[in-house]
Simulated scan of single mutants.
Amino acid sequence: MQAGTHPRVLGYLGRALSLELSAVQQYMTQASLLSLWGQEEAAERFRLDTAEEMQHAQRLVEHMLLLGVAPAASQLTPVSVAGDLVGLLRRNAELEQRLVDHYGEASRFCALIGDTANGHFFHRLWTEERLHGEQLHDWLHQLLGDQRAFVNQRATF
């Protein structure tokens, strides 16, 4: 372990790895589910999400190795599925919010103890996850708007 790395920072890194690998597992599973439903465009977007979360996990592993600790994801969150795309997006938005909250807390802790290097690392991931969460919310709002328009059209017949 690199001198000066606070044990709690290492805990944040381990938890982040667990969350990122949970996201990989969830998006990969949901992409396959969407393919089974014949929704290939949505499935492809989820595959891209899988790749993005895998890159985050890789960065965490590399960072942990640079700090001299062996990466270990302690507990993966079970995959969350739903009966339609809107339900999947809602569950993914919840998972992204957990990541955003985690990285925000880790960044604040690093600032509190004066660990700028790890603080910047967490902050970059926080920024990326926040953007991803916003993209999921935009997609969800687009779908809900389309569904409301469809329901309103049907109601006028």
Rank of each mutant, 00 (worst) to 15 (best):
Y12I: 00
Y12A: 04
L13V: 01
G14A: 14
G14N: 08
R15A: 08
A16D: 04
L19D: 02
A23D: 06
A23F: 10
V24G: 03
Q25E: 04
Q25H: 07
Q26A: 10
Q26M: 12
M28V: 03
Q30F: 08
Q30T: 05
Q30M: 09
A31E: 09
A31S: 14
A31M: 10
L33C: 07
L34K: 05
S35H: 10
Q39A: 07
E40G: 03
E41G: 02
A42E: 11
A43N: 11
R45I: 00
R45Y: 07
F46A: 08
L48S: 08
L48Y: 05
T50M: 10
A51Y: 05
A51R: 11
Q55E: 15
H56T: 02
A57M: 04
A57W: 04
R59N: 07
L60S: 05
L60Y: 04
E62K: 04
E62R: 06
E62A: 04
H63F: 07
M64P: 01
L65W: 06
L65D: 05
L66N: 13
L66P: 01
L67D: 10
V69T: 13
V69W: 11
A73G: 03
S74Q: 10
Q75K: 08
T77R: 06
S80A: 13
V81Q: 15
V81Y: 09
A82R: 14
G83V: 00
G83N: 15
G83Y: 10
G83T: 06
G83H: 15
D84P: 01
D84K: 02
V86M: 13
L88D: 07
L88S: 09
R91Y: 04
N92A: 08
A93H: 14
A93P: 02
L95T: 03
L95A: 15
E96G: 01
R98Y: 00
V100S: 09
V100F: 15
D101N: 12
Y103W: 09
G104N: 13
A106G: 02
A106K: 07
S107D: 12
S107W: 13
F109P: 06
A111E: 13
I113A: 08
I113G: 08
D115A: 05
N118F: 02
G119P: 01
G119Y: 08
F121L: 02
F121I: 00
F122N: 09
W126Y: 13
T127R: 13
E128N: 03
R130P: 01
L131T: 12
L131Y: 10
G133L: 10
